[in-house]
Design a protein around this nucleic acid. Structure first.
Lengths: 131, 131
DNA sequence: TATTAAACTTACCTTTAGGTATGTACTTGT
DNA sequence: ACAAGTACATACCTAAAGGTAAGTTTAATA
């Protein structure tokens, strides 16, 4: 598994925006730079660990710029690079698609959850019966 | 965590195409229906378990249609629904973006890997020293 | 009667992602 | 001397994703 070999462009793109948080971090940054603490508030539910971890990877990928003002207490601002903005543009249609079909998707995922639970319960019942 | 609440359309969309395999399964299906065995060959590296698991979820999400010909040995064909094709269209720009910057992304990810390994080795060295 | 072929299914295991909680560094203001 | 404020770092744990390998079903055919 030395070097990555992407089958298609999508695989590469998803490798950049993969994970639970990255797109949620990108979206507020479209309106301009944010400090670490601000971002934490703008992305509700994220932990500090996930926030810096994501930001670091996004910086490495070149879609986010980190600017350290060398003050105490620390002041660091994050913003989108040109590259990052081009990624946002490419994501726009997908975002729209998601918005248009959000209700439907939510319903499907709930359905999924229900099936998962049923299966889990069935498995539990079986394991109880065997003891 | 009862019901899902998506912050933006992207979150919903990524919930549909999330995971390692789904887009890789969708792409060959753009050229028409495929049997299970065909898909297995068209998506190199995928296991049978991951293939049906993904296909089932995609069917539930309404982006893939499963057609069982009730033959023996079994013959089942999978194809994209209208909804699935609309998703493909929405993915096109992202796919293009990924293709255009594939080299750059590959390089970044290798860089990432290297950092991870360094860190791992450092941690190992420390744990050895402490014993 | 045994075999074959295709599409699953299941059990078990390893790896990775993500969550929680606590600690650190540094300087300004008290 | 010390408390406060901000951006991290680190250790530990749980849950989810994914991999491997073996088994199951069915009717036609040898």
């Amino acid at each position: 598994m030395g070097l990555k070999e992407y089958v298609c462009g999508l695989e590469a793109a998803l490798d950049v925006i993969g994970g639970k948080w990255k797109v949620l971090i990108m979206w507020p940054l479209k309106n301009g730079a944010s400090r670490f603490g601000e971002l934490k508030r703008e992305v509700p539910g994220i932990s500090e660990k996930m926030l810096i971890q994501s930001l670091k990877e996004m910086e490495l990928d070149g879609i986010v710029l980190r600017q350290d003002f060398k003050e105490v207490p620390p002041r660091v601002e994050y913003s989108l690079t040109e590259f990052g903005r081009s990624l946002c543009d490419a994501l726009q249609p997908l975002c729209l698609w998601g918005e248009q079909h959000m209700k439907r998707i939510e319903a499907c995922k709930e359905q999924c959850e229900m099936q998962r639970r049923e299966k889990e319960e069935k498995a539990q019942a079986l394991s109880h019966a065997s003891t």
